[in-house]
Write a protein that binds this DNA or RNA. Structure first.
Lengths: 152, 152
DNA sequence: CCTGAAAGTGGGAGGCC
DNA sequence: GGCCTCCCACTTTCAGG
């Protein structure tokens, strides 16, 4: 389904999608047109989901990354759906996973600072009932955070 | 530093950076040229870090997202630097944070499946010594995972 | 003086064969 | 994979607040 050139193109594009077709074509030893056709195909197949600009947390006053670990007693569908829809709607939430292990859910949350996080936390517990255990831990240091999937 | 139009442009671009200047200009009630100048300025200032293509985990056989929670006894600089450089070099690691709370570090790891994760885990503990406690938890469900920062 | 608008040009994307 | 067309990024110049 994906040959070597496809993977090379994806690898390049997931680091910099502002590269022009010519540059991409040269990098994979192709002429511009077939290169363009491959990329078009990868978009149609859904391998390429979209192209986005990455912004600086610091420059936008969003320096605090927090992880929220949640346990719950509630295991019925209705509660689940309302919980999911509430959390999905909160723009501070960049990641939201149902997980195995000690906790049931994990959130990755981005705010300005502790005060901002406190606001988020209060909003969360106000909007969602039946959260029996909510633990927060904060990123002291953001050592690596990338969007590029490992393609080898 | 950033006015309303800047924020609107950032908001649009962090969802779709393939929009052309004309479309962006219309959306914020500007003509193409000043719109283009603003975006250029935001790039120079480092507010816009880059433009990347987002790829489908599923289509690329990377359906397993795991979180690795790590405690360590080692708190000297040398160990820290070697630990950081080893983990940074592992392409499966999309997120790597030093955290407050019960654990010292947290990793977000993407692999094909449990077998792939096992390979990653073995590689990790082989390359890094002095990990006293390594707990894995797996994402059963990826409910929300976005790259867009909250700009309001 | 700074910020937005108008006009022109070179180049690359996107469709043909 | 080559050709051709059209549109868009980018520059310069001008106008307004």
């Amino acid at each position: 389904m994906l040959d070597r050139k496809d993977r090379e193109l994806l690898q390049l594009l997931q680091w910099d999608c502002s590269l022009c077709i010519q540059e991409l074509a040269e990098a994979v030893n192709l002429t511009p047109n077939p290169c363009w056709k491959r990329i078009k195909r990868l978009e149609e197949e859904g391998v390429i989901i979209g192209r986005v600009a990455l912004l600086s947390k610091e420059k936008l006053n969003l320096s605090l990354t927090a992880f929220v670990l949640i346990k719950t007693q509630q295991h019925n569908h209705e509660w689940y759906h309302s919980f999911v829809s509430v959390v999905k709607d909160m723009p501070e939430v960049l990641g939201f996973y149902r997980t195995t292990g000690e906790y049931d859910y994990m959130l990755k949350v981005v705010t300005s600072d502790i005060k901002g996080y406190d606001g988020f936390y209060k909003k969360l517990v106000r909007r969602v009932s039946g959260l029996s255990d909510v633990t927060s831990c904060f990123a002291m240091e953001d050592i690596k955070s990338i969007t590029q999937l490992p393609l080898r």
